[in-house]
Design a protein around this nucleic acid. Structure first.
Lengths: 114, 114
DNA sequence: AAGACGTACAACCATCTGGTTGTATATTAG
DNA sequence: CTAATATACAACCAGATGGTTGTACGTCTT
């Protein structure tokens, strides 16, 4: 399977949007540690099954989670690679900050870690 | 100045929410490379000044950006530390994944700071 | 076969979001 | 002083979001 590394603006929007909710971050944590069915997840939160179902759908569209049928259940698993991609985007931003000093550093021969 | 490292759920929500918009990510990039006034930023986008003003406000509430008065202008600067905090949150998630395979599980489960 | 379980999906609702325009106020330039 | 500039902020709007309930359907269990 070929995995596209580049994410479009819309995909990045969906990725960070999906992470901007405490329930969804918790679902990611749980399914990162071990797979779970949607109803198992739903049992963990004080909201309707349908609400949890929607949260899982948002995570799935953001590719933070995959859903696989198993009998009448849908097994949810987090995708650590997509989390890594989100992290990489932030690292890119931070590199932009470091680059701010690089030209001056070259001239003055200053330690870039300070 | 004391900086609180721990972010509440609501603060994390706002942080990722702020990053979930291409215009806002671009504002962060620009102000990370070099400070800019709100109107300088507004000139860069095909939307009203007020719209950009709102984006900057969202970034400010997420603490991704600070606004300092200078004469009649408001100078916007990105805060690399807050970006680092967002990155740290993702790293924490990824560590949860790695822990899945190691015996550190027991240790992490007992850690009172989580 | 019948009922329980797990999921899907539609309809509905209140609130939030991202944009707009318009008006007011502070600061700088001439 | 006056005019231009930079910002603030309110009101408004369409569409998205996060929740609900209700209904339908496939899959187990007995």
């Amino acid at each position: 399977m070929v995995v596209r590394l580049e994410l479009s603006d819309g995909e990045v929007d969906r990725l960070f949007r999906a992470l901007a909710d405490a329930t969804r971050r918790d679902i990611v944590r749980r399914t990162l540690v071990g797979e779970a069915s949607v109803s198992e997840l739903a049992d963990a939160y004080d909201m309707s099954f349908a609400a949890v179902q929607k949260h899982v759908a948002v995570l799935e569209e953001a590719r933070l989670v995959t859903k696989e049928p198993r009998g009448r259940e849908r097994i949810v698993r987090a995708d650590p690679e997509q989390i890594g991609r989100a992290r990489a985007l932030l690292v890119q931003l931070e590199e932009l900050w470091h680059a701010r000093f690089s030209q001056l550093d070259a001239v003055l021969d200053v330690d870039p870690d300070t």
